[in-house]
Amino acid sequence: MTVPLPQARDARDPSEPPPPPSDALPIAETFVSVQGEGKLTGVPSWFVRLSGCNLRCAWCDTPYASWAPEKQTRAMADLLDEARRTGVRHAVVTGGEPLLFPRVVELCEGLRAQGMHVTVETAGTLDPAPGAPCDLLSVSPKLSNSAPDPVAFPREHAMHESRRENLPVLRSLLGRQRESGRDLQLKFVVTGPGDLAEIEALLARLEGWEASDVLLMPEGRTREEIGQRSAWVASACVERGWRYCQRLHIELFGNRRGT
């Protein structure tokens, strides 16, 4: 028996929401501020935060893009137009985890085609083909200090620990960025001196980085919490030729969204 196909409708029922564009991305927020972390600290930038993450860091400072993702579906052309209209020359593609979404490659290509310097911020666990083109690849490998409490969050703990380190992907990301001649940074969130041995062990398994590419950022959500760790972190950087990574946006604006 032939099953009849549903009749095509020439017009959508006006009571139905419009279907999302085929090139849409889930966006938690966009805003203009100064870059608060890394090699480009202080540079005026347009931020686009994609909503969704494959990890569950205990100290995550953007839970609205990871643990409990909030999102607005936005078309690529809309995002590119907004970026252009800001008038700033730098764009930061962040999350959550932006590399969860293959179409982020097109977003980066579009931003660079508009003449913008593009930073991509990633945890370094995913590598969408053919890679998201960027001028600065900011990789933040997650250390054991990032795991959520296994008693309070057993499912999230198991998921996080199974995903937080992906050595082949890290090697691929760093290798491609170096081959392109573009810049990179390895940014580590640290909670105590015990993290240093873990960082050194990971770096020993990677190639394509220099000491000046390694940044240590004290974990903390307030100026006071960051300040409690800043002295020993700065000393560790001096001893190893690494960089101290401040959180300028917290210093200037406090721990709030859109900064």
Rank of each mutant, 00 (worst) to 15 (best):
M159G: 03
K187P: 03
D149A: 07
V189Y: 00
P141I: 01
Q72R: 15
S45V: 09
G220T: 11
L126D: 05
G36P: 10
L126P: 03
A58D: 13
S66A: 15
C237S: 03
C108Q: 02
A201V: 01
R9I: 10
W209E: 00
I226Y: 11
L173Y: 02
D183I: 00
K71L: 13
P218M: 09
G110Q: 05
V105M: 08
L25R: 07
E121H: 01
M159L: 15
R49W: 08
G258N: 13
P14D: 06
L136W: 05
R9C: 12
F253S: 12
P193T: 11
R163H: 13
W242M: 01
G131A: 00
A129I: 00
V88R: 00
A75N: 01
M1V: 11
D61A: 06
T2Q: 08
R74M: 14
L174M: 15
S45D: 09
A211M: 02
G194N: 07
V233I: 13
N145L: 02
G258K: 12
E37N: 08
R56I: 07
D13F: 09
V120Y: 04
S172R: 14
N255P: 06
V120L: 14
S22E: 14
G38V: 10
A83V: 09
S235I: 03
T73I: 07
S66H: 02
T30L: 00
P17M: 02
V189F: 03
S172V: 00
G124W: 02
V48S: 03
S22L: 15
L80K: 05
P69M: 04
Q35Y: 05
G95C: 05
T119L: 05
G42W: 02
A158G: 04
V34N: 06
D149V: 03
G241D: 00
Q114F: 00
V189C: 04
A65N: 03
H160Q: 09
W209Q: 08
C57T: 06
G96L: 05
I27E: 02
E161L: 13
C237T: 08
A132M: 02
A236K: 03
P69D: 09
V93Y: 08
F253M: 10
G220Q: 11
D135M: 05
A28M: 10
E225H: 11
L100G: 08
D213G: 07
G220A: 08
I27R: 05
R163E: 09
S172I: 03
S22K: 13
S66W: 06
A234M: 14
G208F: 00
S172Y: 01
E109R: 15
R205C: 12
G192A: 15
N145Y: 03
R103T: 06
G220H: 09
L5Q: 14
T73Y: 08
G87W: 04
D149F: 01
L107K: 04
R257N: 11
A204E: 13
E70F: 00
L170M: 15
E225F: 01
